[in-house]
Structure formats: C-alpha cells, structure tokens
C-alpha cells in the first residue's frame, strides 16, 4: 500500500451530473463521493457508459458538475479549495500548476522531438527559460529511459515510447494530481505494464495523487485503491494484496 497521508489530497463530495433533457435525460453521476490521498495510485473501473470519463473530467476541472464539490489540497496545504467554486481563470491556473493528464491517444506534436514535447509544457506553462526547460525535460526522459531517444519525433517512435513521452509530458512539471484516461488501451501488455509501473513509481516516489480510468483488469495488482462505477454509483473495491515487482 502507498504511503498515503492521513488527510486526502482530493475529496469529491456528492458529485451529480446529468446529460440531456426530459425523456432523454441520463444521469452519469449520482451523488458520487470519494477520497484520494497523496502518493496513491487509484484505479477507476466500470462498464462503458458508466460515467468514468465524466468523473475524471469533473475531478480534474475540465467538466462542471451539476452538484457537489471537488475539494483539493495541492502540495499538502492544510485547507481545501473547491475547484468548482473558483473562477475559470483560477481553475485554469490550478490545472497549470498542479495537474497532469494522460489521454487515450498520445497527442504528441508530429513536428517536435521527444524532448521538445516536454519542453513546450515547461516553457509555455511554467515560463521556464529554454535552457532550464531542456534540462528538466532531459532529466525526465532519463528517468523514463528515453534520454537516448530525446531527438526522435513521434513518427520514429514505437507505441510504448510515445506513451512514455506522453507520461513524461504529464509528469515533467511535477504535478500534485495526475489524471490518466485509458493509458494502456493502445499498448500490448508488456508496454502497458511498463506504463502502469511508471505511474505507480510516480505516485509512490513523488507523492503524486494518480487517478487512472481503465477497463484493463490486469492493472489491479499495481494500484493502491480501486473504485468501480456503475450506472452513476461508485463503490470502493478490495484489491489483491500481491503487487508485482514488490
């Protein structure tokens, strides 16, 4: 189990979300509540259309809920901030400072090298100088075992390399929260396992709170907590005690 604090870093309280009107109205989240802790790798599973991506979008500040709160405590602050109770600009700023994302597609710029994919986040998001951005980007690529591939462009990378670069892009600014949507869906299990191990290491060694949405049950042995969402209702599940590699 991860070395989680006593206080959660993120609390979802009675989240409610519906789509559509009248007869076509569909409830995606029914008063969903959960706690996530620093250094914790959390997995959210559930059937297609169960509301997993909706929950991820609301927790990460990308989609406004119809009701409820998302209380966050970045960098171990003592007080919580409701990210849906602040202005849009403040929420963008929160995401810029504290959140990383990994999406199903790699979404890498075709013209940029592996290193530049990370540098762009540091230069544009954190206003780092080109030299410092390059240094931090290469440091991250080194941790991901990609330093020798830093000049490669996406067209010359394998699927596993692309996903590792995408993970590097999400982690390079050292976020408090990392949200991943089906990060292994396009990978074979060998590469998928490497990716989930990287996420686990990021949570445990850097104290990040990592929330992963996936259908892939093979990830279960690697995560600290697993939630199951079905028809808008959330349950916390037991996970196997044996963790691969530990």
């Amino acid at each position: 189990m991860a070395a989680a604090d006593n206080l959660p870093s993120l609390r979802a309280v009675h989240l409610l979300k519906t789509f559509g009107d009248g007869a076509s109205q569909r409830t995606a989240l029914r008063k969903v509540s959960l706690n996530l802790f620093p250094g914790q790798l959390a997995l959210l599973m559930g059937p297609s259309g169960s509301g997993k991506s909706t929950l991820l979008a609301i927790l990460s500040g990308l989609l406004h809920p119809d009701g409820g709160q998302v209380l966050t405590r970045p960098n171990d602050q003592t007080s919580f901030v409701d990210i849906w109770g602040i202005s849009e600009a403040a929420r963008d700023d929160f995401r810029r400072k504290h959140t990383g994302f990994i999406f199903q597609g790699y979404n890498l710029f075709p013209a940029l090298s592996a290193s530049q994919q990370l540098e762009i986040v540091l230069k544009w998001g954190n206003n780092l100088s080109p030299g410092e951005a390059r240094r931090q980007a290469e440091e991250m690529l080194d941790r991901l075992g990609l330093l020798n591939q830093r000049h490669k462009k996406p067209a010359a990378m394998s699927g596993g390399e692309k996903q590792r670069v995408a993970i590097g892009r999400a982690l390079v600014k050292n976020p408090t929260f990392l949200f991943a949507d089906e990060p292994t869906s396009a990978l074979d299990w060998e590469n998928g396992q490497a990716v989930i191990q990287l996420l686990r290491d990021a949570a445990h060694s850097r104290g990040a709170t990592i929330f992963v949405v996936s259908h892939d049950a093979r990830m279960l042995p690697f995560v600290d907590v697993c939630f199951h969402l079905d028809d808008g209702n959330l349950e916390e599940h037991e996970i196997p005690l044996v963790v691969a590699g530990e």
Binding site: S60, L62, D92, D93, F94, R95, R96, K97, T99, G100, F101, F103, G105, N107, L108, F109, I120, V121, W124, G125, R169, A170, K173
Partner: peptide, 18 residues
C-alpha cells in the same frame, strides 16, 4: 489537424494565447 495536441496543452493549463 492539431486540435488534439492543442487540447492536451489546454488540459495541462497552457494559456490559449500561447
């Protein structure tokens, strides 16, 4: 054609003016 890449940057909080 680069909408997904830009959307990823926006998700990471990169300002649109960039």
């Amino acid at each position: 054609a680069s909408a997904k890449e830009y959307a990823t940057l926006f998700a990471l909080g990169i300002p649109r003016w960039r």
